[in-house]
Amino acid sequence: MIPAAFDYVRAESAEEAISLIGQHGDESKFLAGGHSLLPLMKLRLAQPTVLIDIGRLTDLSYIREDGDVIAIGAMTRHMDVENSPVLAEHAPLLAHAASHVGDPQVRHRGTIGGSIAHSDSASDLPATTLALGATYVAQGPNGTREIAAGDFYKGFLTTDLAADEMLTEIRVPKMQGAGWSFQKFNRRAQDWAIVGVAAWRRNGDSGIGLVNMSSVPVLASGVSSALSGGASIEDAAALATEGCDPTADLNASIEYREHLARILTKRALEASSS
């Protein structure tokens, strides 16, 4: 449980962090809440040579209305997402999903930006923000750009972020009046989801994000199309595994995972419709 040796630098601003990562290159990593990176380092599965600590960039911790969207700073802790009155009003699905991340200690340290940038498909927030049609803001040496969540996840723990870019903001569309549900299936409260489903419905629209059903979080667009086309919840949910490529592990076979995805999608849609 002792990581390999590494150097540590603390960034005082986003600009400095980006400059530092440009300077130290591929073997450096941003350290946000540390709840994914540090365990990997302690197991020596990750051995970055330099950690750039962005933990003091408190100006990146905020949740505020910005026109039709809610802007969330990347360094906002899960606990603040969970308890945000702004999100409770405009995107309660996200606040609720954040309450399912890990345990209270994890939620007090872990950040929404860290979770999304780490892009573990078994994590709750990548799939949830994907379902919500979020946009992510990346800042690099040449300024900022917006990346649609649907374009962000490229593969196992791989995102569209360039090596010298930092995720700075998550922008979630306001969605008052939507029905929503987050179904997380796991064996212990603190665990990653074996399968999770984040879903919302409003008028004819819907969004369904699947946790841990592929190497990347999955937007179950086939389900949404079927619902728009008038399919029953049962029939639409049967399409949940389209485009999924789940793996087997101690907790689930591929077949079981696909079954869970359909059942949980059905339950999520039923809960979103009531």
């Binding site: 197991l43 345990d103 064996r187 212990r188 409260a189 603190q190 665990d191 990653w192 101690l250």
Partner: peptide
């Protein structure tokens, strides 16, 4: 590890 060896916690 305790992520795979499932010792139940109080909430479970």
């Amino acid at each position: 590890s305790l992520a795979e060896y499932l010792v139940p916690a109080a909430s479970d």
